[in-house]
Design a protein around this nucleic acid. Structure first.
Lengths: 203, 203
DNA sequence: GTCTATACCTAGATAGAC
DNA sequence: GTCTATCTAGGTATAGAC
């Protein structure tokens, strides 16, 4: 079965290359403006070949989102392994990571408006399963950070969770980067600061 | 010239109805998913008639954005007339107004990604003029609020301005509304609180 | 300026040979 | 599984009559 295993490995490598292209194009232009022709051209194969791997454009996007969630989970594992870190510090690291990914142009975005894509994602078992895992683990840290008095305990955890998720598609970093006046590090620091302490003066 | 004036008035009323439909559809589905057929159907006229008023889909969106900016300027005038209010209070009112508009489903969104639309907007003199007016007036209040020690003076005004603009397309309110657990008023309060004071505990 | 009917094209998806 | 060639739907825009 070495032959078959090898073939399967080739398959995975190719599909990984596809997902990588989709990921970048999604980050670049978003779902609606990304065309399957572009994906095929970027991967370097024919469009029909793409459809042998993924049955639809939505499935392509879903695969990219699944891989994103897998990476998030891997990062969460990494943070969980930092025994000395508090829940708050772990959340902080998570947001920083998301902002860095976004500034690097590698954060795929799925418009919450598109109905066909949303429907497909909401029917995608793996995606939902991973999304729930991420939410549960972040939720636990949020509640812990609130118990520690590090995150405002009067905020519903749901509100905190959505606020953190929203950093992943925050338009501010891209705008600031576009202005050309700041380095990526400065942008991350300011967005983090505003996220954690708000616009108001005074600690 | 009473006849002509009347006709012009009719024209304006019709075009206002068109822009109202475009505004709601943009708020609902965004530019890419909004179709000109839908706009025509919503207004109750034939598609070809639409094109007598506006030369392209982009022009429709631009008209909606111009009207939004005009409303913003009217609101800024209103705030400027409140002699007793501080710059910070005026900014706060502005953000609140934007959040309410969004929750009411009347905030048109233009994806910053779409190139044809962006190009058209960046060539639209009225739009640019109004956008600059809004930015300058908000910028003045931001700097005043920083001088008053109400907004963190170590933040570049540009960063504050973009952060405020971003409240207009923040996905968090819609998500919280979709969860069904909160009233619009609660959502506005939490988003305002997080915007101004951040997630961290303690004043 | 309004309509019906239609041109034109893009982009998602497929057929069929190899 | 990969390709070339093609189908098809849907969406922007326009022609031409009234």
């Amino acid at each position: 079965m070495a032959r078959l295993s090898f073939r399967e490995q080739v398959l995975r490598v190719r599909e990984d290359a596809i997902v990588t292209s989709v990921n970048r194009l999604l980050a670049d232009k978003g779902f609606d403006l990304m065309t399957v022709d572009e994906v095929a051209a970027d991967v370097g194969i024919a469009k029909a070949s793409l459809y042998k791997h993924f049955p639809s454009k939505e499935a392509l996007a879903a695969a990219a989102m699944v891989r994103l969630l897998e990476r998030v989970l891997a990062f969460l594992d990494q943070q969980a392994a930092r025994a000395e870190a508090t829940a708050f510090q772990r959340l902080e690291a998570m947001i920083r990571w998301a902002l860095a990914l976004q500034l690097a142009g590698e954060m795929p975005t799925v418009p919450s408006q598109n109905s066909t894509l949303r429907a497909e994602l909401m029917a995608h078992k793996t995606y939902l399963e991973l999304l729930m895992q991420v939410s549960e683990r972040l939720g636990a840290w949020i509640e812990q950070a609130q118990a520690d008095g590090e995150i405002d305990p009067t905020l519903p955890p749901e509100v905190v969770l959505f606020t953190i998720y929203a950093r992943g598609c925050d338009p501010v970093p891209a705008f600031l980067k576009g202005s050309g006046n700041f380095t990526d590090e400065q942008i991350v620091e300011w967005v983090m600061r505003i996220c954690l302490r708000g616009l108001r003066a005074g600690a």
